[in-house]
Simulated scan of single mutants.
Amino acid sequence: MQTILGSGGAIGVELAKALKEYTSQIRLVSRNPKKVNKTDEIFSADLLNASEVNEAVKGSTTVYVAVGFPYNLKIWKENWPQFTSSVIDACIMHNCKLVFFDNIYMYDSNYLNGMDEQTPINPPSKKGKIRAEIANMILSKIKEGKLTALIARSADFYGPGIKNTSMLTETVFKPLSIGKKANWMASLNYKHSFTYTPDAGKATALLGNNEKAYNQVWHLPTAENPFTGKEWINAIAKEMDVKPKTQTATKFIVKILGLFIPLMREMPEMMYQYDRDYVFNSDKFTDNFDFKVTPYLTGIREIIASDYSNKKAS
């Protein structure tokens, strides 16, 4: 049995699709889980309840963490360490391998141009400190020999069917699709990598089913040579056949946008990711596995075909 904790989000759904290549025994766990594949087992659980996490994990060979708690610092402080501790304990108790889907908030802000698995850990934000804490919880148990696990890290992500959890969706795709200005934080002139969610799902499933991948950190496959902010907006507008109307969002504007877009309320401390090149290196993965990474333009076209083909900008 391979179990996904947090199965209803953008990554969980893509992961469930990808896992069917490796097994027909997939358990989807969330408060209100829904099947992705016909043979999926659904398991309703409160993932902040340690006993329910334990029951959800029981009988699994591999447990994937694809949870996305609300993007709020207070909630992250309360939920992430508690949840991570419960998952680690359950995996150790039931002798399950753990695959933890992670981001890059813990990396030193001076090393974002070409960041890889060896990038220094020095979180520049409060959210980053939480991510560093929970990653260290996992890595320390691996080092102690008590846990078999891997951490799979993604850049900011984009993909079809994402609701309210992708910056690129909220600030570029959605506004351009209804004739409004795209909003790009800090500066339009810096490169910014995005990981395509179907690629992330497939790659996470591949790692989870490959023994040699464990007890390591991996960057999930992400297209090389990312666009600058201006190039992202121009490319998306061109594929939508709309004008690339643009507004650069200062911290003040981001705070105003937060009144209307919940995701933006938490972004002022994260703006450092947009005032310098943010280039994600996944060479370790592509050097070790035969994997075709989705080019950026292909990803853009697939998102528009999936989510915006019936919308017209006014």
Rank of each mutant, 00 (worst) to 15 (best):
L112W: 01
L112H: 01
N113K: 14
N113G: 03
G114H: 14
G114V: 07
M115S: 11
M115K: 03
M115Q: 09
M115L: 13
D116N: 13
E117Y: 10
Q118K: 12
Q118T: 12
Q118F: 11
Q118G: 05
T119E: 06
T119N: 05
P120T: 05
P120V: 04
I121A: 05
N122G: 03
P123S: 07
P124D: 05
P124I: 02
S125Y: 08
K126H: 11
K126M: 11
K127D: 09
G128L: 01
G128N: 06
R131Y: 07
E133Y: 09
I134F: 06
M137I: 03
L139I: 08
L139M: 13
I142K: 02
K143D: 15
K146C: 12
K146I: 15
L147R: 01
T148W: 01
A149P: 03
A152M: 10
R153W: 03
R153Q: 11
R153P: 05
S154I: 01
S154L: 08
S154V: 10
D156L: 11
F157D: 02
G159D: 02
P160E: 04
G161F: 14
G161P: 04
I162C: 09
I162P: 00
K163E: 14
N164Q: 14
N164E: 14
N164Y: 13
T165E: 12
S166T: 00
M167W: 13
M167H: 06
M167R: 04
L168A: 09
T169S: 10
T169G: 04
E170P: 02
E170R: 15
E170G: 02
T171S: 09
V172N: 02
V172D: 02
F173Q: 02
K174P: 06
L176M: 12
L176A: 08
L176Y: 03
S177A: 15
S177H: 11
S177D: 15
S177M: 11
S177G: 13
I178N: 14
G179D: 08
K180H: 12
K181A: 15
A182Q: 05
A182P: 00
N183I: 12
W184M: 00
W184G: 03
W184I: 05
M185C: 09
M185S: 02
K191N: 10
H192W: 06
H192N: 11
H192E: 07
